[in-house]
């Protein structure tokens, strides 16, 4: 086994906002209907997080649990902890209809930081950032591809599919070029 490498191996760009690809990050797609017995325990066991409300993300140390749809959660955790977390989810949801899969490698994750970080995303996503609430996980798009993001720690964390990481890095860099502040 070699060390896991992220799609862009930590590429970065400094414009009027600072961009960097982070990861690899552990991610699990957990699908189960709301109210499934053991679901809260599974999320707790995997991430230490409480169940997120609709369109929210709950953060707990290096872990997080995000609401993706009425029957889908995104669990974020250290890359190395995924196998263990999947096992704990399986235990907690034993006998319940659910699906938990490792999608860590299917994703690319970016940080957009700086006082004007929001302006980078305002150019790419049809989202009202003035109304984006704290801990709101927003599933939208970045120009032509799917993307999800939320605000935290003086910037935004953006998740997209791994195969389009280069495209998204290109989008973010062009949008953050000096002189193009909104």
């Amino acid at each position: 086994m070699s060390d896991p490498v992220s799609a862009l191996q930590g590429a970065s760009y400094d414009g009027f906002a600072q961009l960097r690809e982070i990861g690899p990050l552990g991610m699990i797609t957990l699908r189960a209907k709301a109210g499934t017995p053991g679901l809260e325990a599974a999320v707790q066991a995997a991430t230490g997080c409480a169940m997120p409300q609709m369109r929210r993300i709950v953060r707990q140390g290096p872990c997080a649990a995000g609401w993706m749809s009425p029957d889908e959660l995104l669990l974020i955790l250290p890359y190395a902890d995924v196998a263990g977390a999947l096992a704990r989810i399986g235990e907690a949801l034993q006998g319940q209809h659910h699906l938990a899969v490792d999608v860590s490698d299917a994703r690319a994750v970016f940080r957009i930081e700086g006082a004007k970080a929001d302006q980078v995303l305002r150019k790419l996503s049809p989202v009202d950032f003035d109304r984006l609430e704290p801990n709101e996980l927003r599933r939208s798009r970045a120009a032509q591809v799917a993307a999800a993001f939320w605000a935290e720690e003086g910037g935004f964390t953006l998740v997209c599919f791994r195969s389009v990481a280069g495209y998204v890095m290109g989008l973010l860099s062009v949008s953050a070029r000096p002189g193009a502040e909104l």
């Binding site: 799609a7 120009a143 389009v164 062009v174």
Partner: peptide, 16 residues
């Protein structure tokens, strides 16, 4: 066209 030109004219999917 906006930003959609050159390298980012459209998403190019790349395998590892």
């Amino acid at each position: 066209a906006g930003e959609a030109r050159g390298e980012i004219f459209q998403p190019l999917r790349k395998t590892p």
